[in-house]
């Protein structure tokens, strides 16, 4: 598939996101608006999967590399980190563990309850129809 087209599609949606931000002044990042509008466009068939998939996969699978320059930015706040590394590291570690456990458990619980209700509702439904 045409890689220029694939790349172009991503930038068209990013530009659309920028346009929405410029027009409305919302605080949502343009890339998120671009992402959602691309999802919608794929769903309604304006864009076909084969017109973006290859480039999208390349970018998504190599996301780590694109983070490197941002990480090197640590060097510009070494002083701040030296003086406040305890709260920074502490908050990061604790909060990451909290998110992992809260997200996982809430998902498991809600799903379990939904299955249970679904099961009961089904039984009830079939009983009354009889």
């Amino acid at each position: 598939m045409n890689m220029i087209l694939q790349c172009g599609v991503l930038f068209v949606f990013l530009a659309f996101g920028e346009f929405v931000v410029w027009l409305t002044g919302v605080t949502i990042p343009s890339s998120i608006i671009g992402m959602l509008s691309l999802t919608v466009a794929l769903k309604i068939g304006v864009v076909k999967l084969c017109q973006v998939e290859k480039m999208a996969n390349f970018l998504v699978h190599n996301l780590g590399f694109f983070f490197v320059p941002a990480g090197v930015g640590l060097i510009s706040c070494l002083g701040l980190i030296a003086s406040e590394w305890v709260p920074i590291v502490g908050a990061m570690v604790v909060s990451t563990a909290v998110i992992l456990l809260v997200t996982g458990h809430v998902h498991q619980q809600v799903r379990r309850r939904m299955r249970f209700r679904h099961f009961n509702g089904h039984k009830h439904g079939s009983a009354t129809s009889r």
């Binding site: 991503l10 671009g34 691309l38 794929l42 996969n57 998504v60 996301l63 941002a70």
Partner: peptide, 12 residues
């Protein structure tokens, strides 16, 4: 990173 976030729309 910006177009990469847009690309996540494909996974979505």
């Amino acid at each position: 990173l910006k177009p990469a976030v847009v690309a996540l729309g494909v996974s979505l």
